[in-house]
Amino acid sequence: MAAVPATRTLRWALAAIAGGLVLAAPFVVTDKYLLRILTFVGINLIMVAGLSLLFGYAGQISLGHAAFYGLGAYTSGFLAKLGVAWPLALVAGVAAAALGGLLLALPSLRLKGHYLAMATLGFGEIMLFFFTETEVITGGSNGLRGIPPAGLGPLVADTPQTKYLLVWAVACVVLLLAANVVRRRPGRALRAIHGSEMAAQACGIDTVRMKVQVFVISAALGGLSGVLYAHYVGFISPSTFTLHYSLVLVTMVALGGMGSLAGAVAGTVLLTMLPYADAIIPGLSRATVELLQDWESDIHGMVLILVMLFMPGGLAGWGRSFLARISVRRARSAGGDA
């Protein structure tokens, strides 16, 4: 039994260390390139937190999450360019994505597995079509330029450091809230739906309502992520919101392990940093990095296949068996002492 508090302490300690590192980064890291990549990690984390709830926990696959990212980014970018204050643009961006999520969720409720995968994929492609074709709002394939940085009155996140801090502050809050959800009643209900919708209903779970809720939350987080992205880079174009990006997100969750937020975080950090490995691994040759970038899609595809074939628990599964081994060892040595 002693093992349980031990892992809990370990978990908190790890979270504290991670939080400290995250906050310290912009003051220590002078390399703008690295800071930029770390900011993208934060943006992806918000996105993946949402997808993890929907796909990793509730087992509802989405191959169209880039659409919500785009809805948030375009709505907020467009409004901000009209002079709307950033907080309002942000709310509108999140709301637009949430609405999109609701509109997709309602008719998709009956769909499972492949059908849901195809419906979300189709939705993503349709949204991409609109991002490209509604030129008045989105700037068409030329994109939307000159989106002002995030800010509230005189406080403007316009330096790499402040942008980083804004993104990561939001990411940390989102992850904390999500972590709170997944280990409590709603999180259990989502996992129950993943396990067996029929048994979940027999336990009194309103599966329809739950699925709509988690779809909307997931879409809203996608929108939030898109808003931060738009105001971070200042320029958005349809080439960002593609099926490919949706698949990368799915890869991050799958690599992390279904039903694990920590795993999804690890998967996101790993896969986002991978093509820029030279920023953290000193001495990595330019050629190696270029190779990694050139083979990024292959790596994602192979990760999806290999994880499903050989480590269905993903990184989280590894982590769990590692922790289990530690606690067995502890229990054994404790038994030896007595």
């Binding site: 696959i61 492949h114 995968a117 595809g301």
Partner: peptide
């Protein structure tokens, strides 16, 4: 079915990329 969907999605990424 989810695992199989993901495997074929992975396959499509790999084929296109190769």
């Amino acid at each position: 079915p989810m695992a199989l969907i993901i495997i074929t999605v992975g396959g499509s990424l790999v084929f296109a990329s190769v």
